[in-house]
Design a protein around this nucleic acid. Sequence first.
DNA 1: TTCACGTTTCAACTACTCATGAACTATTGA
DNA 2: TCAATAGTTCATGAGTAGTTGAAACGTGAA
Lengths: 115, 115
Amino acid sequence: MKQCRALNALSALANEHRLEAVRLMVPRGHDGLTAGEIGAALELSASRLSFHLNALEAAGLIESERKGRNICYRVSYGALRDLMGYLLTDCCGAHPEICSSLMACDGKPPGARRG
Amino acid sequence: MKQCRALNALSALANEHRLEAVRLMVPRGHDGLTAGEIGAALELSASRLSFHLNALEAAGLIESERKGRNICYRVSYGALRDLMGYLLTDCCGAHPEICSSLMACDGKPPGARRG
DNA sequence: TTCACGTTTCAACTACTCATGAACTATTGA
DNA sequence: TCAATAGTTCATGAGTAGTTGAAACGTGAA
């Protein structure tokens, strides 16, 4: 991942509504959510919602697909993975203890793990 | 991690110089780098460097310690871990394949892994 | 105490991001 | 074709973030 792409992704995530939108989409997988569902959950006006979803899509963090009247949005997991990899450059080499605690996958939500 | 803290961290990282500074510090572990070393690597004026390091410290992403004339900065790995956990809320529950590819730790830099 | 070095603080300026509401496009069903 | 629904685009103005250079501060050495 190039710095430019990482910066775009971080800038896109550095907004309360966009961060919440992504967190809303993450557990929904490929099915995603319609713009309307996201707007309702975030209590955003249509134009604000569209603005923020566009920003996330432009940053490559989400993808969209029209389904009839609705447009369905889902997280681009590859982009999320690349972003984290970029942030952690070389931490595995010098400090494996950081990566291993960071990267343990036990089937529980990462937010529920500490230490 | 609360949304507010995650937002502060993401905003802090959403800047070319601050992102590079963090990536510079990540592999240095607890030893960190002095402000002068970071400034030289990033080719920043003293005042700009100070501004950016302050922003990172205020966001909780780095810690500082005076060592004689120098001030030593290092990454707060806990903050980085919490931030990623916050982003990935519940992805393990619904989509373990995402987490496992994201979170595999094999001693190689995450940036060198694909797929 | 004085000097030099490394770093921080401040004020002024510029550029960007976000919210708003009206107008617009795309799709569906009568 | 027309109306309803779902979502997007645009212009505007307010607020915030980043850059700059000068001055000030804290520390160690002479």
